[in-house]
Write a protein that binds this DNA or RNA. Structure first.
Length: 593
DNA sequence: CTTCAATGTCATTCC
DNA sequence: AAGGAATGACATTGA
């Protein structure tokens, strides 16, 4: 049921879906139809339903708050004529979420400026400085943020998050173009390792300035900021930090990349504070819900993602984001990496979250992070990073609080993204198109699907295992319905693929065999023809010799008067006894008769 | 943008 | 009956 609901939502939301997506949905649908109800599956479904209900409640709550914030912001607009940033502590999250329209004008200006700055600086690669510098130098990002206090969150986000720019700009006249260019520029800038390092250092500095009570917390906070590769991890850590800070929950040790994450510009800090505040303000569950809802989430995501986007160019993050986003707003992507960030939180979760529950985070994460590795051994997958950016940041707060390091628990929700979209969008943002394409090329559709649903088996395993082993594998690993359906479809398609290959191979072999037969027959024909010609020529020669011999014999014959005998008047005939008679031709017939 | 070959997928039938 | 092979027809993809 949930699947169907999700599917419908997706359809409504995404009209731009690729055929691949449609296919994927079909697969899901097929899976849903199939009746595979293990006891565990039913339990999962029940849990999913409850979670969905809870999420719904949360969503409503968020919407209310957003509306409130929106109203407040609107007032601000009237006063200033522009969107005036509200210093209010509550504003950050709410404003970030809903205010897009209001803030747009101010943002657009700032955004354009940022774009220009980027355009100017980008070619030289000096742009690194801008993001790195927390202060005035923060370049475009900072400037944008500075433009309006209330708009900060939005503005900040816009540059960082690909999707945001489009959203914010859309109302404005220039919007999309700028957003696209900006996104690309940002992506490239972020991708620069140097810049990341600088950012990380700045982040550290800023953190020190902020003087967070717990040193541990600092790293987590950094994690919040979306770094390309690090961003997700950072997010997770940040979430953890927030939780720990608020709820005094044990902080989770920051992910590997925390140090890198650290660097953030001053504007980022502002965002961060807002984010942290929001996270603290909203329970983790709320955050998750928000992810489920594109609109609501966007605001928060924007704030979060802005920073993250700046830093994060890692394909994995974008990948996941792309997945999530795909469900929400297909249009937004528009090929820009930036778009992915906002999406990540909202849609994907609701759609696929249910499915993913069975799997541990580690598995899921591995899947996400290693798009290309999907085919590779699962062992590799698992060994790989467990810091799934998307998952952590999405699920994060509640989960982290309760279980600091148990990432596995909630990741599934994040997974939701659809396979096809995932591969395409996610890879693009960080790495350049080439990488995306190459990685995409690597993964087959089924591999992408399996990856999307966090299926802990390789496609080869699913396809090639004997029936008994396959069933055993399925029984040992509790998969949700969607996963089971997908696994079956993968197996079916895999088998059929091999069958088709064999069939074509056989066809080709048959064709080759027929061609060979044809050649041999042609050769035989030629041989027989030549033999026939030889025989004919021999026969002709024998006839000629016989005729000459005949005439020779006649030439030696004489009649009684000694005259030569004409062959036209007589013919020679040999009796069975061997004696030869000279028979007149006229008489001859006469005699015979 | 079109064409074409290779390949994947689906539906169906048969074993 | 289930699973899979075989195969025609169509879709997708990349050159």
């Amino acid at each position: 049921m949930s699947m169907m609901m999700e599917m419908e939502a997706m359809h409504s939301g995404q009209q731009n879906m690729d055929l691949i997506d449609i296919l994927w949905r079909q697969d899901i649908d097929l899976g849903a139809r199939r009746e595979v109800f293990d006891y565990s599956h039913r339990q999962k479904e029940y849990e999913l339903q409850r979670q969905q209900e809870l999420e719904e409640e949360k969503r409503l709550h968020l919407l209310r708050e957003k509306e409130k914030a929106l109203l407040a912001q609107l007032q601000l607009d009237e006063e200033t004529g522009e969107y005036v940033p509200r210093p209010l502590p509550t504003a950050p999250l709410q404003s970030a979420a809903t205010p897009l329209e209001i803030t747009q004008d101010a943002e657009t200006l700032s955004f354009d400026e940022c774009l220009q700055l980027l355009a100017e600086t980008f070619p030289v690669e000096e742009t690194e400085d801008a993001p790195v510098r927390p202060d005035a130098t923060a370049a475009a990002s900072t400037d944008c943020s500075s433009s309006s206090s209330s708009s900060r969150s939005v503005v900040m986000m816009s540059p960082e998050q690909p999707s945001l720019p489009s959203l914010t700009l859309s109302p404005a006249p220039q919007p999309q173009r700028m957003s696209l260019d900006m996104e690309q520029a940002w992506m490239e800038l972020l991708s620069l390792p140097e810049l990341q390092q600088c950012l990380s250092q700045q982040m550290e500095d800023t953190l020190e300035i902020a003087s967070y009570p717990v040193a541990e917390a600092q790293e987590p906070n950094y994690t919040f900021y979306p770094m390309p590769s690090l961003a997700d991890k950072e997010k997770n850590t940040l979430n953890d930090f927030i939780h720990t800070f608020d709820g005094s929950v044990p902080t989770v040790p920051p992910p590997d990349n925390l140090s890198q994450i650290k660097a953030e510009a001053p504007p980022l800090n502002t965002n961060f504070s807002l984010n942290s505040f929001g996270s603290s303000f909203y329970p983790a569950a709320m955050l998750e819900e928000s992810a489920g809802q594109p609109d609501v989430e966007r605001e928060e995501c924007n704030i979060m993602s802005d920073v993250q986007n700046l830093y994060s160019l890692s394909p994995g993050d974008t990948f996941e984001r792309g997945r999530h986003t795909s469900s929400e707003v297909p249009d937004v992507d528009s090929g820009l990496s930036s778009s992915t960030s906002p999406r990540t939180f909202s849609p994907g979760k609701s759609l696929y979250g249910d499915e993913g529950f069975g799997y541990s985070d580690s598995d899921l994460e591995d899947m996400d992070q290693n798009p290309g590795s999907a085919e590779s051994d699962y062992s590799e997958m698992f060994s790989l990073n467990f810091q799934p950016d998307d998952v952590q940041h999405v699920v994060p707060l509640s989960m982290l609080v309760g279980q600091p390091q148990n990432q596995k628990v909630k990741l599934p929700k994040l997974e939701k993204m659809e396979p096809a979209e995932e591969s395409g969008h996610s890879s693009a943002p960080f790495t350049k198109d080439k990488r995306k394409r190459s990685s995409d090329v690597r993964l087959s559709r089924d591999e992408q699907r399996a990856k999307a649903l966090k299926i802990p088996f390789t496609v080869d395993m699913i396809t090639n295992l004997p029936v008994d082993d396959f069933n055993e594998l399925m029984s040992k690993n509790q998969l949700n319905e969607a996963q089971l359906a997908l696994v079956r479809d993968i197996r079916r398609r895999g088998k059929n693929k091999v069958a088709a290959q064999n069939c074509r191979k056989r066809k080709m072999e048959n064709i080759v065999g027929l061609e060979q037969d044809l050649d041999s027959l042609k050769e035989e024909k030629e041989r027989l023809l030549s033999e026939k010609l030889r025989n004919m020529s021999g026969l002709r020669e024998m006839k000629r010799q016989l005729n000459s011999l005949y005439l020779e014999v006649f030439g030696m014959l004489r009649d009684e008067s000694g005259n030569a005998i004409s062959p036209s008047d007589f013919s020679l005939q040999q009796s069975s006894e061997g004696s030869v008679f000279l028979v007149p031709r006229t008489k001859k017939t006469f005699i015979k008769s």
